[in-house]
Design a protein around this nucleic acid. Structure first.
Lengths: 195, 195
DNA sequence: TAATAAGGCTAACATACGTTAGCTAATCAT
DNA sequence: ATGATTAGCTAACGTATGTTAGCCTTATTA
């Protein structure tokens, strides 16, 4: 791993945990095993590190939600749908990089327009668009009652997003949050799926 | 209005807009028409101002969600339910104090345990508990199909909360967000209300 | 082999910012 | 009236922090 990448990794971790403003340049450098001023061989400044992080977050986002091949094949039953959805949720909560990006964005969303926009895309449209496709597909196969797939996706994902945020800030409630999410998903299936 | 209160008002506005760390003590004082060091006649330090703000936020919360008299009388029809709900949403978005507290919390939620907990209470349980009561009441009167009122409340409020957050960080999208919320609420009614 | 570039270091700077000390004017209770 | 408290001010301090300058070593390349 190049030094630049290790800097980005350390910065992401620290920014997510303590916020951009309360993370010192020396602190980031320390995690990488170099001194503060050496960072400036790799970045123009602290803000530049943040921007680079956001760039990679954008790339991550595109890679994950841009193509459809990551959706896997459509679930064939109610139980399978629950399992798949919970799988995505657990992954999203636990993947270190994704969870750090989430924490970073939520704290810095008011810093500038770009961050605001990206936060919206991640928090609101990312998962939702993904599930719109999935539900649409399952609707075509008659597994969901006819309805607006985008609306259903929103109703499926919104409570999950809130509970994931909650787990981010109160990790001791992760289990409880996951249970709430599963309860919600099952209820969602009972209401909107056929048979 | 006492100076202390004016300080709190200015601090809330600035913290909400720029975050705690990027708000200077002199800046707060300037808004009140005094000099930075004079703040220390009223508060022990900058952090103390934040804590006092959180205290009043807590009081606000209790006052608003603690008693049930603020719910008003139960809506008598689908249309009335939509109107009431949208009314509460618009109020929540536009009331300056509430919207500032929301922005403050969302930015500082990782600062300490107390802020994390309060953020959860505001973002997750506040409105939800309120609507649990309302839906429960309407269920008793046969206006909602029999179901778990808390789950329904979560499904009603979660998308709204996300869209309100979105309007907070992208005020230029307020109208669009409100429309999405109304669409969601109407869909919710179609699914869960009787007739 | 010589020259150059990369990437690390130390020293130092600039400055912004939270906070304290100490003075003064005004208000208020005795 | 007078002593005390309140609440403002200026000056100054201390420190943390982002950044720059300049040096040195190592690796690459002509």
């Amino acid at each position: 791993m190049t030094t630049r990448e290790r800097i980005l990794g350390a910065a992401l971790t620290l920014f997510a945990e303590n916020g951009f403003d309360r993370t010192g340049v020396d602190q980031i450098a320390g995690c990488v095993g170099i001194k503060g001023p050496s960072l400036y061989k790799h970045f123009k400044g602290k803000e530049d590190i943040l921007n680079a992080l956001i760039d990679t977050a954008e790339a991550r986002y595109e890679e994950y939600f841009g193509s459809e091949r990551h959706f896997g094949k459509l679930p064939g039953s109610k139980e399978e749908f629950v399992r798949m959805t919970m799988g995505k949720v657990s992954f999203t909560i636990r993947d270190p990089m994704i969870s750090r990006i989430r924490k970073l964005l939520v704290q810095e969303q008011f810093r500038n327009e770009r961050l605001a926009e990206i936060t919206t895309r991640h928090q609101l449209y990312g998962i939702q668009r993904m599930f719109t496709k999935i539900i649409e597909g399952m609707m075509d196969e008659g597994m969901f009652k006819k309805d607006d797939p985008a609306l259903l996706a929103a109703e499926l994902t919104a409570p999950a997003v809130l509970l994931i945020s909650r787990a981010d800030r109160q990790p001791q409630c992760e289990k409880e949050s996951l249970e709430s999410i599963e309860r919600h998903i099952r209820h969602f299936c009972d209401v909107y799926m056929t048979e």
